[in-house]
Write a protein that binds this DNA or RNA. Structure first.
Length: 401
RNA sequence: GGGGAGAUGGCCGAGCGGUUAAAGGCAGCAGACUGUAAAUCUGCCGACGAAUGUCUACGGAGGUUCGAAUCCUUCUCUCCCCA
Protein backbone atom coordinates (compact mmCIF):
# COMPACT_ATOMS: atom_id res chain seq x y z
CA UNK A 1 0.00 0.00 0.00
CA UNK A 2 1.10 3.53 -0.55
CA UNK A 3 2.17 5.44 2.52
CA UNK A 4 0.90 8.87 3.36
CA UNK A 5 3.33 11.76 3.43
CA UNK A 6 5.56 12.00 6.45
CA UNK A 7 3.74 15.08 7.66
CA UNK A 8 0.36 13.42 7.40
CA UNK A 9 1.60 10.38 9.25
CA UNK A 10 3.20 12.62 11.81
CA UNK A 11 -0.07 14.28 12.68
CA UNK A 12 -1.65 11.01 13.74
CA UNK A 13 1.43 9.54 15.35
CA UNK A 14 2.14 12.53 17.52
CA UNK A 15 -1.46 12.93 18.61
CA UNK A 16 -1.62 12.51 22.37
CA UNK A 17 1.99 11.36 22.56
CA UNK A 18 4.06 12.57 25.46
CA UNK A 19 7.48 12.20 23.87
CA UNK A 20 8.96 10.98 20.63
CA UNK A 21 12.68 10.35 21.01
CA UNK A 22 14.36 11.35 18.87
CA UNK A 23 11.86 13.07 16.61
CA UNK A 24 14.28 13.55 13.76
CA UNK A 25 15.06 9.86 13.59
CA UNK A 26 11.41 8.99 13.36
CA UNK A 27 11.01 11.38 10.43
CA UNK A 28 13.95 9.73 8.74
CA UNK A 29 12.58 6.27 9.35
CA UNK A 30 9.20 7.29 7.98
CA UNK A 31 10.82 8.84 4.96
CA UNK A 32 12.89 5.78 4.30
CA UNK A 33 9.96 3.43 4.75
CA UNK A 34 7.90 5.47 2.33
CA UNK A 35 10.59 5.45 -0.31
CA UNK A 36 11.32 1.75 0.00
CA UNK A 37 7.66 0.93 0.58
CA UNK A 38 8.61 -1.08 3.62
CA UNK A 39 6.48 -0.78 6.73
CA UNK A 40 8.11 0.04 10.05
CA UNK A 41 8.19 -2.56 12.80
CA UNK A 42 6.28 -1.04 15.67
CA UNK A 43 6.55 -2.92 18.91
CA UNK A 44 4.39 -2.90 21.98
CA UNK A 45 5.13 -5.15 24.91
CA UNK A 46 2.40 -6.37 27.18
CA UNK A 47 2.42 -8.05 30.52
CA UNK A 48 0.06 -11.02 30.63
CA UNK A 49 0.06 -11.20 34.41
CA UNK A 50 -3.49 -9.90 34.53
CA UNK A 51 -6.28 -10.97 32.19
CA UNK A 52 -8.31 -7.78 32.15
CA UNK A 53 -7.57 -4.70 30.12
CA UNK A 54 -8.90 -1.25 30.85
CA UNK A 55 -9.18 2.11 29.18
CA UNK A 56 -5.67 2.94 30.40
CA UNK A 57 -4.24 0.07 28.37
CA UNK A 58 -6.38 1.35 25.55
CA UNK A 59 -4.30 4.51 25.26
CA UNK A 60 -1.19 2.78 24.06
CA UNK A 61 -3.14 0.17 22.07
CA UNK A 62 -4.85 2.95 20.15
CA UNK A 63 -1.46 4.39 19.30
CA UNK A 64 -0.42 1.03 17.94
CA UNK A 65 -3.64 0.98 15.97
CA UNK A 66 -2.70 4.33 14.47
CA UNK A 67 0.44 2.77 13.07
CA UNK A 68 -1.63 -0.06 11.65
CA UNK A 69 -3.92 2.43 10.00
CA UNK A 70 -0.88 4.06 8.44
CA UNK A 71 0.18 0.74 6.98
CA UNK A 72 2.97 -0.18 9.36
CA UNK A 73 3.62 -3.54 10.95
CA UNK A 74 2.31 -3.69 14.51
CA UNK A 75 3.95 -6.26 16.73
CA UNK A 76 2.45 -7.25 20.05
CA UNK A 77 5.02 -8.87 22.28
CA UNK A 78 3.46 -11.07 24.90
CA UNK A 79 5.80 -10.99 27.86
CA UNK A 80 5.10 -14.55 28.83
CA UNK A 81 8.69 -15.21 29.81
CA UNK A 82 8.80 -12.54 32.49
CA UNK A 83 5.31 -13.43 33.66
CA UNK A 84 6.40 -16.99 34.21
CA UNK A 85 9.41 -15.88 36.20
CA UNK A 86 7.40 -13.33 38.11
CA UNK A 87 9.17 -11.85 41.05
CA UNK A 88 10.87 -14.84 42.67
CA UNK A 89 11.26 -12.99 45.94
CA UNK A 90 7.47 -12.69 45.99
CA UNK A 91 7.67 -9.15 47.20
CA UNK A 92 6.09 -7.50 44.28
CA UNK A 93 2.43 -8.34 44.29
CA UNK A 94 1.88 -6.89 40.86
CA UNK A 95 4.25 -9.46 39.49
CA UNK A 96 3.09 -12.82 40.75
CA UNK A 97 4.66 -15.96 39.45
CA UNK A 98 2.36 -17.55 36.93
CA UNK A 99 2.18 -21.03 35.59
CA UNK A 100 2.45 -21.65 31.90
CA UNK A 101 -1.28 -22.33 31.75
CA UNK A 102 -2.19 -19.09 33.47
CA UNK A 103 0.10 -17.16 31.21
CA UNK A 104 -1.43 -18.74 28.16
CA UNK A 105 -4.95 -18.08 29.37
CA UNK A 106 -4.14 -14.48 30.18
CA UNK A 107 -2.45 -13.96 26.85
CA UNK A 108 -5.49 -15.33 25.08
CA UNK A 109 -7.78 -13.03 26.98
CA UNK A 110 -5.40 -10.12 26.41
CA UNK A 111 -5.34 -10.68 22.67
CA UNK A 112 -9.11 -11.02 22.52
CA UNK A 113 -9.57 -7.71 24.32
CA UNK A 114 -6.81 -5.99 22.39
CA UNK A 115 -8.77 -7.03 19.33
CA UNK A 116 -11.41 -4.51 20.34
CA UNK A 117 -8.87 -1.89 19.36
CA UNK A 118 -6.30 -3.47 17.06
CA UNK A 119 -6.66 -4.95 13.62
CA UNK A 120 -5.99 -8.54 14.53
CA UNK A 121 -5.64 -9.66 10.92
CA UNK A 122 -2.45 -7.74 10.30
CA UNK A 123 -1.18 -7.84 13.86
CA UNK A 124 1.95 -9.86 14.47
CA UNK A 125 1.84 -11.56 17.84
CA UNK A 126 5.02 -12.96 19.35
CA UNK A 127 5.93 -14.52 22.68
CA UNK A 128 9.21 -13.45 24.17
CA UNK A 129 9.79 -16.83 25.79
CA UNK A 130 10.62 -17.98 22.26
CA UNK A 131 13.99 -16.33 22.44
CA UNK A 132 14.49 -15.47 26.10
CA UNK A 133 13.88 -19.00 27.27
CA UNK A 134 16.51 -20.20 24.85
CA UNK A 135 19.28 -18.08 26.32
CA UNK A 136 21.74 -19.81 28.59
CA UNK A 137 23.72 -18.34 31.44
CA UNK A 138 26.64 -17.24 29.28
CA UNK A 139 24.23 -15.48 26.95
CA UNK A 140 22.78 -13.67 29.90
CA UNK A 141 26.16 -12.63 31.21
CA UNK A 142 27.15 -11.40 27.79
CA UNK A 143 23.93 -9.42 27.60
CA UNK A 144 24.34 -7.89 31.04
CA UNK A 145 27.90 -6.83 30.27
CA UNK A 146 26.41 -4.24 27.92
CA UNK A 147 24.92 -2.32 30.79
CA UNK A 148 26.28 -0.75 33.96
CA UNK A 149 24.83 -0.44 37.44
CA UNK A 150 25.08 3.32 37.36
CA UNK A 151 22.95 3.45 34.21
CA UNK A 152 20.45 1.04 35.71
CA UNK A 153 20.12 3.15 38.80
CA UNK A 154 19.12 6.06 36.64
CA UNK A 155 15.69 4.55 36.43
CA UNK A 156 13.27 6.49 38.50
CA UNK A 157 11.90 3.79 40.69
CA UNK A 158 15.33 2.26 41.25
CA UNK A 159 16.65 5.64 42.35
CA UNK A 160 13.74 6.12 44.70
CA UNK A 161 13.91 2.68 46.17
CA UNK A 162 17.65 2.91 46.56
CA UNK A 163 17.32 6.19 48.38
CA UNK A 164 14.49 5.03 50.57
CA UNK A 165 16.49 1.91 51.42
CA UNK A 166 13.95 -0.52 50.04
CA UNK A 167 15.43 -3.63 48.54
CA UNK A 168 16.23 -4.01 44.87
CA UNK A 169 17.04 -7.52 43.75
CA UNK A 170 19.61 -8.15 41.06
CA UNK A 171 17.10 -9.92 38.88
CA UNK A 172 15.10 -6.75 38.59
CA UNK A 173 17.94 -5.34 36.56
CA UNK A 174 17.37 -8.16 34.12
CA UNK A 175 13.85 -7.12 33.20
CA UNK A 176 14.81 -3.99 31.27
CA UNK A 177 17.54 -5.99 29.57
CA UNK A 178 15.08 -8.73 28.67
CA UNK A 179 12.68 -6.19 27.25
CA UNK A 180 15.56 -4.65 25.34
CA UNK A 181 16.44 -8.05 23.93
CA UNK A 182 12.95 -8.21 22.51
CA UNK A 183 13.67 -5.10 20.49
CA UNK A 184 16.94 -6.57 19.27
CA UNK A 185 15.24 -9.81 18.34
CA UNK A 186 12.44 -8.08 16.48
CA UNK A 187 14.61 -5.37 14.95
CA UNK A 188 12.04 -2.88 16.14
CA UNK A 189 11.95 0.52 14.49
CA UNK A 190 9.63 2.02 17.03
CA UNK A 191 8.59 0.97 20.51
CA UNK A 192 5.56 2.30 22.30
CA UNK A 193 4.92 2.52 26.00
CA UNK A 194 3.57 4.59 28.84
CA UNK A 195 5.77 7.32 30.29
CA UNK A 196 6.67 4.93 33.09
CA UNK A 197 8.25 2.72 30.44
CA UNK A 198 10.60 5.40 29.16
CA UNK A 199 13.66 3.96 30.81
CA UNK A 200 13.00 0.44 29.59
CA UNK A 201 12.33 1.64 26.09
CA UNK A 202 15.62 3.51 26.07
CA UNK A 203 17.46 0.40 27.23
CA UNK A 204 16.10 -1.33 24.14
CA UNK A 205 17.43 1.49 22.02
CA UNK A 206 20.85 1.29 23.63
CA UNK A 207 21.03 -2.47 23.32
CA UNK A 208 20.15 -2.39 19.65
CA UNK A 209 23.07 -0.06 19.15
CA UNK A 210 25.33 -2.50 21.01
CA UNK A 211 24.12 -5.22 18.66
CA UNK A 212 24.86 -3.03 15.65
CA UNK A 213 21.26 -2.34 14.79
CA UNK A 214 19.59 0.86 13.79
CA UNK A 215 18.23 1.91 17.21
CA UNK A 216 14.49 2.14 17.71
CA UNK A 217 12.65 5.38 18.19
CA UNK A 218 10.63 5.47 21.36
CA UNK A 219 7.21 6.97 21.76
CA UNK A 220 5.79 7.43 25.22
CA UNK A 221 2.17 8.11 26.02
CA UNK A 222 0.84 9.81 29.12
CA UNK A 223 -0.45 7.57 31.84
CA UNK A 224 -4.15 7.90 32.25
CA UNK A 225 -5.26 8.42 35.80
CA UNK A 226 -8.14 6.28 36.97
CA UNK A 227 -11.59 7.41 37.99
CA UNK A 228 -10.23 8.68 41.29
CA UNK A 229 -8.22 11.22 39.33
CA UNK A 230 -5.16 10.42 41.37
CA UNK A 231 -3.47 7.13 40.79
CA UNK A 232 -2.76 5.73 37.40
CA UNK A 233 -5.54 3.53 36.18
CA UNK A 234 -5.17 0.04 37.51
CA UNK A 235 -7.46 -2.74 38.47
CA UNK A 236 -5.68 -3.17 41.77
CA UNK A 237 -6.50 0.41 42.74
CA UNK A 238 -10.12 -0.19 41.83
CA UNK A 239 -10.12 2.94 39.71
CA UNK A 240 -10.28 1.35 36.30
CA UNK A 241 -12.78 1.33 33.50
CA UNK A 242 -12.49 -2.17 32.09
CA UNK A 243 -12.74 -2.75 28.36
CA UNK A 244 -15.19 -5.54 29.02
CA UNK A 245 -17.17 -3.70 31.68
CA UNK A 246 -20.88 -3.64 31.10
CA UNK A 247 -22.02 -0.52 29.25
CA UNK A 248 -23.78 0.87 32.33
CA UNK A 249 -20.70 0.43 34.47
CA UNK A 250 -18.50 1.95 31.85
CA UNK A 251 -20.77 4.96 31.58
CA UNK A 252 -21.17 5.32 35.32
CA UNK A 253 -17.47 5.11 35.94
CA UNK A 254 -16.83 7.68 33.24
CA UNK A 255 -19.26 10.03 34.96
CA UNK A 256 -17.35 9.81 38.20
CA UNK A 257 -14.08 11.22 36.92
CA UNK A 258 -13.17 14.65 38.14
CA UNK A 259 -13.58 17.76 36.02
CA UNK A 260 -9.83 18.20 35.68
CA UNK A 261 -9.60 14.84 33.96
CA UNK A 262 -12.25 15.44 31.31
CA UNK A 263 -9.98 16.94 28.69
CA UNK A 264 -7.34 14.30 29.21
CA UNK A 265 -9.88 11.55 28.77
CA UNK A 266 -11.07 13.10 25.55
CA UNK A 267 -7.52 13.04 24.24
CA UNK A 268 -6.38 9.68 25.56
CA UNK A 269 -9.41 7.52 26.10
CA UNK A 270 -11.32 8.24 22.93
CA UNK A 271 -8.71 9.74 20.64
CA UNK A 272 -10.68 12.88 20.00
CA UNK A 273 -9.35 14.97 17.17
CA UNK A 274 -7.84 18.38 17.73
CA UNK A 275 -11.06 20.26 16.93
CA UNK A 276 -13.13 18.34 19.42
CA UNK A 277 -10.52 18.74 22.10
CA UNK A 278 -10.27 22.47 21.69
CA UNK A 279 -14.06 22.74 21.73
CA UNK A 280 -14.21 20.76 24.96
CA UNK A 281 -11.47 22.84 26.45
CA UNK A 282 -13.34 26.01 25.62
CA UNK A 283 -16.60 24.73 27.05
CA UNK A 284 -14.92 23.81 30.28
CA UNK A 285 -13.19 27.14 30.56
CA UNK A 286 -15.99 29.57 29.85
CA UNK A 287 -18.56 27.42 31.67
CA UNK A 288 -21.05 27.89 28.85
CA UNK A 289 -21.93 24.26 29.34
CA UNK A 290 -22.38 22.38 32.58
CA UNK A 291 -19.25 20.23 32.92
CA UNK A 292 -21.58 17.37 33.63
CA UNK A 293 -22.91 17.54 30.10
CA UNK A 294 -19.43 17.49 28.64
CA UNK A 295 -18.84 14.43 30.74
CA UNK A 296 -22.03 12.83 29.51
CA UNK A 297 -20.74 13.18 25.97
CA UNK A 298 -17.49 11.61 27.08
CA UNK A 299 -19.30 8.73 28.76
CA UNK A 300 -21.32 8.07 25.62
CA UNK A 301 -18.20 8.18 23.48
CA UNK A 302 -16.34 5.70 25.65
CA UNK A 303 -19.20 3.23 25.71
CA UNK A 304 -19.78 3.66 21.99
CA UNK A 305 -16.16 2.79 21.30
CA UNK A 306 -16.42 -0.60 22.94
CA UNK A 307 -20.11 -1.47 22.82
CA UNK A 308 -21.54 0.55 19.97
CA UNK A 309 -23.88 3.50 19.76
CA UNK A 310 -27.04 1.75 20.84
CA UNK A 311 -25.48 0.50 24.05
CA UNK A 312 -24.11 3.94 24.82
CA UNK A 313 -27.57 5.49 24.67
CA UNK A 314 -29.04 2.72 26.78
CA UNK A 315 -26.27 3.17 29.32
CA UNK A 316 -27.01 6.86 29.59
CA UNK A 317 -30.67 6.16 30.04
CA UNK A 318 -29.91 3.64 32.75
CA UNK A 319 -27.74 6.18 34.47
CA UNK A 320 -30.44 8.83 34.42
CA UNK A 321 -32.94 6.41 35.80
CA UNK A 322 -30.87 4.93 38.59
CA UNK A 323 -28.62 7.75 39.63
CA UNK A 324 -30.29 10.96 38.62
CA UNK A 325 -33.87 9.96 39.35
CA UNK A 326 -32.93 7.38 41.96
CA UNK A 327 -35.27 4.80 40.50
CA UNK A 328 -34.47 1.15 40.52
CA UNK A 329 -32.97 -0.18 37.30
CA UNK A 330 -35.00 -2.61 35.23
CA UNK A 331 -32.48 -5.38 35.43
CA UNK A 332 -30.86 -6.54 38.60
CA UNK A 333 -29.84 -9.76 40.27
CA UNK A 334 -32.69 -11.52 41.91
CA UNK A 335 -33.10 -14.25 44.46
CA UNK A 336 -36.02 -16.27 45.63
CA UNK A 337 -36.54 -16.40 49.34
CA UNK A 338 -37.81 -19.63 50.83
CA UNK A 339 -37.94 -18.71 54.49
CA UNK A 340 -37.82 -15.71 56.78
CA UNK A 341 -34.34 -14.25 56.57
CA UNK A 342 -32.50 -11.44 58.26
CA UNK A 343 -31.91 -8.55 55.91
CA UNK A 344 -28.29 -8.56 57.03
CA UNK A 345 -27.85 -12.13 55.89
CA UNK A 346 -29.51 -11.44 52.58
CA UNK A 347 -27.24 -8.61 51.59
CA UNK A 348 -24.12 -10.34 52.83
CA UNK A 349 -24.83 -13.64 51.14
CA UNK A 350 -25.55 -11.92 47.86
CA UNK A 351 -22.34 -9.95 48.05
CA UNK A 352 -23.88 -6.56 48.35
CA UNK A 353 -21.55 -6.20 51.32
CA UNK A 354 -18.28 -7.87 52.24
CA UNK A 355 -19.14 -8.98 55.74
CA UNK A 356 -21.97 -8.98 58.22
CA UNK A 357 -20.16 -6.32 60.17
CA UNK A 358 -20.25 -4.08 57.14
CA UNK A 359 -23.89 -4.90 56.57
CA UNK A 360 -24.71 -3.88 60.14
CA UNK A 361 -22.75 -0.71 59.75
CA UNK A 362 -24.67 0.19 56.62
CA UNK A 363 -28.03 -0.48 58.25
CA UNK A 364 -27.00 1.68 61.17
CA UNK A 365 -26.05 4.45 58.79
CA UNK A 366 -29.28 4.33 56.90
CA UNK A 367 -27.81 3.09 53.67
CA UNK A 368 -30.13 0.12 53.28
CA UNK A 369 -33.55 0.51 51.76
CA UNK A 370 -36.37 -1.88 51.04
CA UNK A 371 -38.69 -0.64 48.33
CA UNK A 372 -37.06 2.72 48.87
CA UNK A 373 -37.97 2.71 52.56
CA UNK A 374 -35.01 3.27 54.83
CA UNK A 375 -34.67 0.56 57.42
CA UNK A 376 -32.90 1.06 60.70
CA UNK A 377 -33.64 -2.17 62.50
CA UNK A 378 -30.65 -4.47 62.53
CA UNK A 379 -32.91 -7.45 63.04
CA UNK A 380 -35.23 -6.66 60.19
CA UNK A 381 -36.54 -9.89 58.71
CA UNK A 382 -37.76 -10.31 55.16
CA UNK A 383 -40.56 -12.78 54.60
CA UNK A 384 -40.94 -14.75 51.41
CA UNK A 385 -43.94 -14.34 49.17
CA UNK A 386 -43.77 -10.68 48.39
CA UNK A 387 -41.49 -9.16 45.80
CA UNK A 388 -39.35 -6.32 47.09
CA UNK A 389 -36.29 -4.42 45.97
CA UNK A 390 -33.38 -4.16 48.34
CA UNK A 391 -31.04 -1.26 47.81
CA UNK A 392 -27.67 -0.84 49.47
CA UNK A 393 -25.83 2.44 49.12
CA UNK A 394 -26.45 4.26 45.90
CA UNK A 395 -26.08 1.62 43.30
CA UNK A 396 -26.42 -1.90 44.63
CA UNK A 397 -29.74 -3.53 44.03
CA UNK A 398 -31.25 -6.92 44.59
CA UNK A 399 -34.72 -8.16 43.76
CA UNK A 400 -36.05 -10.50 46.40
CA UNK A 401 -39.04 -12.68 45.70
C1' G B 1 33.85 -11.53 57.27
C1' G B 2 32.84 -7.63 61.38
C1' G B 3 29.52 -3.97 63.61
C1' G B 4 24.73 -1.46 63.95
C1' A B 5 19.36 -0.76 62.90
C1' G B 6 14.80 -2.86 61.69
C1' A B 7 10.10 -6.26 60.28
C1' U B 8 3.11 -3.48 63.43
C1' G B 9 -3.74 -3.70 60.31
C1' G B 10 -4.75 -2.30 52.41
C1' C B 11 -0.41 1.46 52.72
C1' C B 12 2.57 4.94 55.83
C1' G B 13 3.51 5.09 60.88
C1' A B 14 3.13 5.41 66.76
C1' G B 15 3.38 2.03 70.78
C1' C B 16 8.25 -0.72 73.81
C1' G B 17 5.03 -5.76 80.05
C1' G B 18 -1.45 -4.82 81.77
C1' U B 19 -6.14 0.74 80.76
C1' U B 20 -4.09 -1.98 73.04
C1' A B 21 -8.50 -4.55 68.04
C1' A B 22 -3.50 -1.54 68.75
C1' A B 23 -2.55 6.47 68.45
C1' G B 24 -2.27 9.45 64.00
C1' G B 25 -2.35 9.95 58.66
C1' C B 26 -3.68 8.03 53.76
C1' A B 27 -6.88 4.87 51.21
C1' G B 28 -11.90 2.65 51.57
C1' C B 29 -17.34 2.61 52.75
C1' A B 30 -21.95 5.18 54.08
C1' G B 31 -24.89 9.64 55.18
C1' A B 32 -25.60 15.13 54.24
C1' C B 33 -24.65 18.65 50.25
C1' U B 34 -24.13 17.97 44.75
C1' G B 35 -23.38 17.20 38.69
C1' U B 36 -22.45 9.28 41.26
C1' A B 37 -17.31 15.96 39.96
C1' A B 38 -14.31 18.50 43.44
C1' A B 39 -14.34 20.56 48.25
C1' U B 40 -16.64 20.27 53.02
C1' C B 41 -19.14 18.16 57.34
C1' U B 42 -20.75 13.55 60.05
C1' G B 43 -20.35 8.42 61.08
C1' C B 44 -18.02 3.75 60.20
C1' C B 45 -13.68 1.18 58.95
C1' G B 46 -10.57 -7.40 61.58
C1' A B 47 -14.36 -11.54 61.82
C1' C B 48 -18.69 -13.47 64.31
C1' G B 49 -22.70 -12.12 67.48
C1' A B 50 -28.81 -8.07 69.35
C1' A B 51 -25.35 -7.55 73.26
C1' U B 52 -21.94 -7.86 78.26
C1' G B 53 -18.80 -10.77 74.62
C1' U B 54 -15.93 -14.54 71.74
C1' C B 55 -12.21 -15.51 68.23
C1' U B 56 -8.15 -13.96 64.98
C1' A B 57 -4.04 -10.32 64.43
C1' C B 58 1.73 -6.73 65.57
C1' G B 59 7.66 -11.43 60.21
C1' G B 60 7.90 -17.47 61.67
C1' A B 61 8.69 -21.02 65.76
C1' G B 62 9.53 -21.69 70.83
C1' G B 63 10.08 -19.63 75.95
C1' U B 64 9.64 -16.18 80.55
C1' U B 65 5.20 -14.10 83.04
C1' C B 66 -1.03 -14.16 86.40
C1' G B 67 -0.56 -11.16 81.74
C1' A B 68 3.66 -10.02 75.75
C1' A B 69 3.17 -6.11 69.78
C1' U B 70 6.25 -4.94 74.00
C1' C B 71 11.26 -9.27 77.65
C1' C B 72 14.43 -13.88 76.21
C1' U B 73 16.04 -17.79 72.50
C1' U B 74 16.06 -19.14 67.59
C1' C B 75 14.81 -18.92 62.43
C1' U B 76 13.55 -16.00 58.01
C1' C B 77 13.88 -11.39 55.59
C1' U B 78 15.50 -6.10 54.94
C1' C B 79 18.52 -1.70 55.42
C1' C B 80 23.07 1.01 56.92
C1' C B 81 28.40 1.33 58.08
C1' C B 82 33.30 -1.03 57.85
C1' A B 83 36.26 -4.84 55.14
Amino acid sequence: MAFLSVDQQWELISRGAEEILPEEELRQKLEKSRKSETPLNVKLGCDPSCPDLHVGHGVVLRKLRHFQDLGHQAILVIGDFTAMIGDPSGRNKTRPQLTLEETKANAKSYIAQAGLILDIDTLKIVYNSDWLDAMNFSDVIRLSSHYTIARMLERDDFTKRYQSETPISIHEFMYPLAQGMDSVELKADVELGGTDQKFNLLVGRNLQREYDQDPQVIITLPLLEGTDGNEKMSKSYGNDIGLTDKPEDMYGKSMSISDEMIEKYFILAIDADADTVSKVKKQLQDSSVNPRDVKRALGRAIVKLYHGEEASLAAEQHFDQVIVNKDAPEEMDEIILDSDTLIIDIITENELTKSKGEARRLVKQGAVRIDNEKISDMNFVLNPGKEVIVKVGKRKFLRVK
